[in-house]
């Protein structure tokens, strides 16, 4: 519905060029509905056919909370405006300061966070936004597992060095990467002391699917991924916009992750859904940040691996250079 979509993305009809683009899409939508398949409107056609069997009308909830009925043949697919996606992606969620707390005592390297992240962001098994590392701080201290996402630094070295504003810091604290802007110089990778960034050395794993089914680039999900550009942990900015917690946080079976808003001083455990005070959690457990001496001011906090629930990894088995080729 034109009303509905323009409410969702207000600047959709701001200019003539966008308007004509909308008209164009609209006409494609009609054609797709009519012939049930074809070109970019295959999905629309599918939805139409699917709904046609049930009734000639469909009930729709509008933005102002009214239930209305609409003839199905009047429906056309909502297609996000790429400019609007870029704009909201670069602004971030107003009034939020996202923060993550990782409880090292609970991690047993299940790697569910890694898998959920890779599946959401279309990555290969060795392409990481979040990786779980085996850490040993000193020869006589016990090793422990450490999930390592991007630290979303408040003083991010990667953002400083980027020559084209491809990687940027949002008002809600998230550091994102725009792979439509990235020139692939990899200065940000050199600058990141946490090795948090990855580069698409080859075509992304879903490159062929991207070719057949066109998806608009969403900077908050960083898909479709692109060869020759940087990718990185996004704190699942797309999930946060939907009021959901990040993929890794909800995928963890061992209640390792807390996620929340620093402004609210509250973080919620992704497994137990228990919400606690951020300041108290950090104070009571002596929370810390990685390499604070570098002055990067990370937004990811760690709780020390005290009273670990799981056995320390066998050093013989894991070593420092474990590999997992796929």
């Amino acid at each position: 519905m034109s009303d509905e979509s323009s409410n969702k993305v207000p600047n959709n009809q701001n200019t003539n060029s966008r308007k004509s683009r909308r008209d164009f899409l609209k006409s494609i939508g009609y054609t797709g509905a009519a012939i049930a398949a074809g070109g970019a409107a295959i999905y629309t056609g599918y939805r139409y056919e699917h709904a046609k069997g049930k009734s000639g009308m469909v009930t729709v909830l509008t933005n102002d909370n009214r239930l209305v009925q609409v003839p199905i043949d009047q429906i056309h697919e909502f297609k996000p405006d790429p400019h609007a996606l870029q704009k909201r992606g670069r602004q971030g969620l107003e009034g939020r300061r996202w923060v993550m707390v990782i409880d090292l005592a609970k991690c047993r390297n299940a790697r569910k966070c890694v898998e959920a992240c890779q599946s959401a962001h279309h990555l290969r098994p060795h392409e990481y936004h979040i990786n779980t590392l085996i850490m040993q701080d000193a020869p006589n201290t016990a090793p422990y597992y450490m999930p390592k996402p991007c630290q979303h630094c408040d003083n991010p070295p990667c953002v400083s060095v980027c020559p084209v504003d491809a990687t940027f810091k949002r008002q809600d604290g998230i550091v994102l990467i725009d792979n439509e802007r990235c020139i692939g110089c990899r200065f940000c990778m050199a600058a990141c002391p946490y090795s948090a960034r990855m580069f698409h050395w080859q075509e992304p794993v879903l490159a062929q699917e991207y070719e057949t089914s066109f998806t608009e680039y969403d900077v908050e999900l960083n898909t479709p991924q692109r060869k020759g550009t940087i990718s990185k942990c996004l704190f699942s900015a797309d999930r946060l916009r939907e009021n959901e917690m990040p993929y890794c946080v909800t995928a963890c079976p061992n209640s390792v992750f807390y996620f929340g808003d620093e402004n609210e001083d509250a973080v919620t455990n992704g497994t137990t859904k228990e919400t606690v005070r951020l300041s108290q959690l950090l104070k009571q457990n002596a929370g810390y940040r990685l390499m604070p001496e570098l002055g990067t001011q990370p937004r990811v906090y760690y709780l020390p691996p005290k009273n670990r629930l799981f056995d320390a990894p066998d050093k013989e088995l894991t070593g420092n250079h474990s590999t997992q080729t796929t």
């Binding site: 060095v161 020559p163 084209v164 504003d165 580069f199």
Partner: peptide
């Protein structure tokens, strides 16, 4: 030599179009 290192050499004009003066590359 630098262009040969770039993952997206066709985006070289971006350095001039969107250049950020904070970056030593500029």
């Amino acid at each position: 030599v630098i262009v040969s290192d770039m993952g997206r050499p066709e985006r070289l004009p971006y350095v001039f179009m969107y250049g950020r003066i904070q970056s030593p590359i500029l």
